[in-house]
Design a protein around this nucleic acid. Structure first.
Lengths: 212, 212
DNA sequence: GCATGAGGTATTGGATACAATTATGAAATC
DNA sequence: GATTTCATAATTGTATCCAATACCTCATGC
């Protein structure tokens, strides 16, 4: 997961802001003032600005020229779109990866699951969620596909947190994840794919119920 | 297509650099030095940096911390991934849009096609290409889906230009586009979707043949 | 001869200062 | 009283300057 690129302050700050958003410290629609944030996080406005731009790419904040950045509102169609896309793309990645899985991949996936079961912090839980899925998809070695799926997952995590769904269904999610992992280990392609589909549909359903 | 957000110099510069890349002035792998570019484009390094970050999001350049930005190399799997994804996502957008098309949408699409037939500049041709597809998908009103599809289209345009494919198959592409538009106007859902699929597959095929 | 490390240069990342734009609010006008 | 206007403040975008990091050369040791 670690890239060879030297981490810059902007990246670090982006991570911190992401955590603050996912933890609920910053709520949807809230404006993110550059000066205040920069002093709060102990950096200048320059890297902060880059961080905000990064978060905008990930769909967590919305930037409007000369008007500033605010935490994105979770609109009605966003959840549908995200999960429709994930339902189309992730089975493709999983199928491409299935023949190339190694024991190390399964170990990484299981490690993420175990850590998730003990995790309370929502931001870290979301991160572990992605670690699990990524472990299963990465052996496909399809970088471009993986990058898009990662974006969609990050945005989904945002939606789940906003809908207070990620905490509520964590134990359900865990069992679904373990079944999916088991199917992958057995080399059961149709089972794994259908388990993945079911998992995504259940997640979407639970989010839907929480938004009014 | 114009958003209400005030265009900033960073955005303008991003557009210029994108054009320079698509026109072949900057070739893949070439490093993009900030100082040189900033003086060439008449802006400071600060907005230039933001522009490069934007282009990195679009997948046209690659940024590595403290090492700089370079025009992205067109790797083998990228084309496959992009078109696999487009083949899954764009039919969904088209189907969602079909019932909501208005005469204005068709007019916009046709205008883009007519302009494309007379266009020589590769960057503008790529832009018109997207304008056409966007006109057909936008009535779906699915913003998140559209945003992802836009990214994929921009990246595809990059790949097509790099493979010297966009110029060669422009007349073929035009006829495919017009058939697709016709099917949409007739309200022929299955015809439109299959035409779209064929169009994408042909584009992928022609790119494949040009890369060695 | 080749690896290795010190030093200097080139280039990027970050901090600060300044300009451009937008939001705010009070006064004037209908 | 509501609305428009204009000035002022708050906020973002841009330019400039400084610091951190990577790259390249060249000396030095084996």
């Amino acid at each position: 997961m670690k890239s060879d690129t030297q981490e810059t302050q902007a990246d670090a700050v982006a991570g911190k802001i992401r955590a603050l958003i996912l933890n609920g410290t910053f709520h949807p629609g809230q404006p993110l003032r550059q000066e205040a944030l920069s002093e709060q996080l102990g950096v200048s406005r320059t890297p902060l600005r880059h961080a905000l731009q990064s978060l905008a790419e990930d769909g967590l904040v919305e930037i409007t020229g000369y008007k500033g950045a605010r935490v994105k509102e979770l609109d009605q169609g966003m959840v549908s779109d995200l999960f429709d896309m994930r339902l189309l793309l992730e089975p493709l990645a999983l199928r491409s990866a299935l023949r190339h899985h190694t024991k190390l991949d399964f170990a990484k996936a299981e490690m993420a699951l175990d850590a998730a079961d003990a995790e309370q912090d929502l931001a870290k839980l979301a991160e572990l969620n992605w670690d699990f899925h990524y472990a299963l998809y990465r052996p496909s070695n399809r970088q471009t596909l993986l990058r898009t799926i990662e974006q969609l997952n990050k945005a989904s995590a945002f939606a789940e947190v906003m809908a207070s769904s990620i905490a509520v269904r964590s134990e359900k999610s865990s069992s679904e994840h373990r079944k999916l992992l088991q199917a992958c280990q057995n080399g059961d392609e149709v089972g794994a794919v259908s388990m993945l589909r079911e998992h995504l549909q259940l997640a979407r359903h639970d989010i839907r119920n929480w938004e009014e």
